[in-house]
Design a protein around this nucleic acid. Sequence first.
RNA 1: GCCGCCUUAGCUCAGUUGGUAGAGCGACGCUCUCGUAAAGCGUAGGUCGUCGGUUCGAAUCCGACAGGUGGCUCCA
Length: 672
Amino acid sequence: MVDPSPSPSVDDPAKDDRTDATTGEQTGLDRFGDDKRVVAVRVDGETWDLSRPIPDGAAVEPVLIDSPDGLAILRHSAAHVAAQAVQSLHPEAKLGIGPPITDGFYYDFDLADPFTPESLREVEKVMQRIVKERQRFRRREVTDTEAAAELADEPYKLELIADKSRVAEDVVVHVGDGDGSGDASSVEVGAGQLTIYDNLKRDDSVAWFDLCRGPHVPHTGYIPAFSITRSSAAYWRGDQANKQLQRVYGTAWPSRDELKAYEFRLAEAARRDHRKLGAELDLFSFPDELGSGLPVFHPKGGVIKREMEDYVRRRHIEEGFDYVGTPHISKEGLFHTSGHLPYYKDTMFPPMELEGSSYYLKAMNCPMHNLIFRGRGRSYRELPLRFFEFGSVYRYERSGVVHGLTRVRGLTQDDSHSYVTPEQAPGEIRHLLDFVLGLLRDFGLDDYYLELSTRGDSDKFIGSDEEWAVATAVLEEAALGSGVPVVPDPGGAAFYGPKISIQTRDAIGRSWQMSTIQYDFNQPARFGLEYQAADGTRQQPVMIHSAKFGSIERFIGVLVEHYAGAFPPWLSPVQVVGVPVAGEYVPYLVEVADRLRTAGIRVEVDDSDDRMQKKIRNAQKEKVPFMLIAGGDDVAAGAVSFRYRDGTQKNGVPVEEAIREITDAVAARVQV
RNA sequence: GCCGCCUUAGCUCAGUUGGUAGAGCGACGCUCUCGUAAAGCGUAGGUCGUCGGUUCGAAUCCGACAGGUGGCUCCA
C-alpha cells in the first residue's frame, strides 16, 4: 500500500480545526488520523466521517481505504471533486447526482453543451488542483428549509430534498453494481437528517458544497490517483421521460500503482473483446448489407456453433426432451393468443401482409410449442412432456442497444418447454437448473450468478397474486438450493411469470443474461392447454420455459471472451496444425493428419511457402491447441515434435502417442 | 429510441492550414528449402461509408442517412 497522502508529516488542516468537536469528545481523526489508510470510522454499524465526535462508549472500528466501504468513500469524494471542477469551469452547470460505482464514480450535470474529450481533460486538470489544495470536507446538519435555501439554484437537488420523505432506504454508501445504475436518490439523501458537505480551503472559505449523506474522506489530499474516463448522456433519475443530463465518469484508487493496474486490466479486457477476436480469428462478422445486429458465422465460428448445438441437442435427448421444429413466421393471431403482441409489438419486426393476413417473424417459440401440445388430447401419463428445438427468433432491438453477438436482432435459442402438472413443477425446475449448471461446467464457465426475477410491485404483469406467489416460491426454493449466489431482481419477470436466469459478465464487466428458466401459468390458460388427469378430470398444465445457452450467439460471444479465443480443444475450430520443418516433410505430416482426421480431429497441415517459424507464429496467433512439427529426425524415428499452445514442447513423441494424447484431450472436454 | 464520438485498401492505421491518396500486415507471383512466434524481391488492390450542399477545387468544411462505438433507457 502506497501512502495516499503525498506529505503526511505536513500540518493536516483537518487536525487543527474540528468544527464538529463541540463537545470536546474524541473524533476519528484523534484516534486514527495518523494512519492515512483510514478514511472513516464505523460507529455502531454506521459509517462516519473521521471528523465527527465519537459518543462515549460507542463501538468504533476504522474503515480502511482499500476495503469496499473505504473505496466507495474515496470514490464518492472524488465525485465531489469532479463536480466542483465542472462547476468552476462551467458555472451554469446544474448538479444531478454523483455516486460511487464499481471502480469509480460518476456525476451528472445539466449542461447546455455535452462534454468533449478536451473539456474532460480540463476537468481533470482542475481536479488535480483541488486535490493539491487538500480541501477539507466539512459535514453540516441542516433542516429541509435550510437545505432548500442554500441550494436554491440547484433545481435537481431541490427535487431530491422535496422527495426526501419518499426515500426510506437507509443506505450509507451505495456501491454500484457495475452497470452504472443504482437508486440515485438513496445515494444523496436518505430518510431523516439532511446534511451538506462543504469543501473548505486553507483559510476556511467554502470552495464548494453539495447536498450529500456522506461520509467523505477528511480532505481531498486523500484522493491521490484518479482519472476522468468518459462522458455520456443519462436521463435524470433514470427515466426516459426526464431530461438527459451530461454524465462524467471517473475512476479513483488509493494509489497510482493501483490506478495503473486498473488501466492495465481494462486494456487486457479490451484484448479479449469478442468483437475484436471474432474478426481476428475469422469466426463471424456483421455485414452491413444484412443490417445491424445480424451476424454471419464463418467456417471457424461455425465449428464452435455446431459443437455447441451437437452438445445441447444430445443432452436434451438424454434428459427426456423431444426434438421438434417450428417455422420462423406466423399469422398474428398466434401472438394475440399468447399475449405477447401487446407487450412486444414495438420490438417485433413489422408484419408482412399476405392474402388478407398479417404475418410476423417470431420473436419467441413458446406459442408454437403450445400448438404442438394442443395438437391432440394429452394424458397425465405423458407428463412431463418436454419439447426442444433450435428456434431462430427475430427481435427489433433498438438501434442503440445492438452490441456484437451479445445483443443481436436475429438469434437462435436452444429453447425448450416442459409441460408438467403443478405438483411436478418444483422437481422439473430443480432438474432444469441442474441441467443448466452442468452445461456451464462443461463449457468451463465459472463466473456467474443466478438472478431471481419477480413481479415486484410493477403492474405490467398478468395473472393472479396467488399464482405469482406460488410460482415465485417454487423458483426461489430451487435457486437458493442450487448453491449458486442468488441476486433478487424485483420487477424483472416476464409478463407471464417469474424466472431464474444465469447472469455472467463480459470482458469489460457488463453482465448478460444467459440461461433462463421461467415458470408460466398464463400461456397454458390462454391457449386452453389441458390434460386428462387420473381421475378423468381435465386439468391445466404448468409450462416451464428454459433455454440452456439462452442465445447461441450470445453464449459464443461470452465463450470467446472467457477463453480470450484460446478455446478448449473440443471447441477449437482447428485442433491441430502440422508444421513441416521444410517442404519435403509435408507428405509425412499429411499422413499423420489423415490418421487424426479419421479419429475425428480437426487438423490442418501448413504446406505454404512460409518458413516454419512463421507457420508456428501463425498457428499460435490462431490459438490452435496442438502443433505437430516434423523434420528429418522425426521422419526417421516415426515421431513428431509436439508443441502446446502455451509454448511448451515435447520432442520425439511417437506418432501413435501423439494421436492418443490429442484424441484423449478432445474427448475429455478439458482446457489445456 | 436518446446524447457523444468514429467510418481512408481484406485488416491495423498515416494523410500538415481544402489543391482529386500512402505504409505495414494479408493476398497473389518469383527466388530461398529452412528445427520451435515474422526470409527476400515484386505485383495487384481504394470513385476516402452513402447521398446532398459550400467552394474554382472536398478524404479534409456543413447537413441528412447507414453502419460501428461509449453510455442512458430497454431487454419476451
